[in-house]
Design a protein around this nucleic acid. Structure first.
Lengths: 198, 198
DNA sequence: CTTAAGTATGTGATTGCTCACTTACTAGGT
DNA sequence: ACCTAGTAAGTGAGCAATCACATACTTAAG
């Protein structure tokens, strides 16, 4: 069954992401990936010269999806606090639909050698952080958020919440709603950051 | 060079932890470990029947050290807020002295098969969480912490902070002081949680 | 419209390497 | 004499990557 290179590449990347979730990123072999796609192991090397470049393509795909979700989140809302909520919800949603994402951050593929892959993920986290900082600053200017907390610090608190919830969700056999619990705790944190008007 | 089994076991466990720090948990091979200890690779199997049981021994060691640090942190302070700070500092300190710790949570050794190891680490995180919850509750009873935030929720915010900072520290080339930045942001968060006496 | 040449996608077999683990044997301590 | 801690030399499995070869598509000439 012959397919176009673009289509095949996409299939392979999708299979890697799926396998990474199910068996762990470090267990994803070229053989297992090829079997999941339904081609021979050697066929993979027609589309990617090495396994490392395959992982880079995976990172690109993930980065693209994340950027798209962020844009959509910002396009749909306008108040700074609503935008923060939308961004956080988008992030949690992406983790749910790509559960391998947190594991990728700590896999051997990423952490040893493969400096490009590592830089790609770091850049992603920094861009998300920057979006949150911008909205926090707008919220302060609008008088809705406490001025005594620097936007950069508050952003670290919020992004850490995403990561903490993701770890909790991964380790405890995903037995709660990541989005539900995450948004509930986000509300708690946002209440603390909000100017009290009582 | 012949040594007692107990001593050798301890040496081997220490070598695994050191190697895990330096090259990543999944790169730790029996050969590399043996070389670090200064014995033949086969010698390892005199002391541990399989590599998995070796990792379990490592987990035991780490769990013991963590529990010891928590106890020391609690013994040295008495106010609830100081105790929270001491616990968080102890946790950050352990990550600095065992940088493989966050990676271990997502390593292949832990996540596939080896359910015992996974349960051991999950139990550790839950016990830390419980210690924080207890101190938060004491802080509320003493009238020092806002009552409108449940201690369980606040504890998630605090432990997430540890994990978020650890990720940041791992991905960035460890180019900031994990303890310094972590404790600074902890202060920010604690100020938000503290009853305002102005 | 047909056909031959060229190219893109695919395969089975193999290579060279690393790994966890085994086996047969040896030396030191009591 | 007898364990105990050690070794050197394997074994078989799994891995990424390669190679010679096959088959489907594309294109251009007659």
């Amino acid at each position: 069954m012959r397919k176009s290179a673009e289509l095949r590449k996409a299939e392979i990347v999708a299979a890697v992401l799926d396998l990474a979730d199910r068996i762990g990123p470090d267990r994803v072999t070229t053989g297992a990936t090829a079997a999941a796609v339904g081609v021979s192991q050697a066929a993979l090397f027609r589309h990617f010269p090495t396994k490392d470049t395959l992982w880079l393509a995976v990172a690109d795909q993930v980065a693209g999806e994340l950027a798209m979700e962020w844009e959509r989140a910002l396009a749909g809302t306008d108040g700074p606090i609503d935008r923060i909520k939308a961004l956080m919800a988008a992030q949690l949603g992406q983790i749910v639909s790509t559960p391998a994402l947190p594991m990728l951050l700590f896999s051997r593929e990423l952490n040893v050698g493969n400096e490009d892959l590592r830089a790609a993920f770091r850049g992603l986290l920094m861009r998300f952080q920057a979006l949150i900082v911008a909205e926090l600053a707008r919220g302060q200017d609008a008088g809705r958020l406490r001025r005594e907390v620097a936007p950069e610090d508050a952003a670290v608190l919020l992004t850490s919440l995403v990561q903490g919830m993701a770890i909790r969700w991964s380790l405890g056999a995903r037995n709660f709603s990541l989005i539900g619990e995450g948004m509930r705790l986000l509300d708690v944190q946002l209440r603390l950051l909000t100017v009290n008007e009582d």
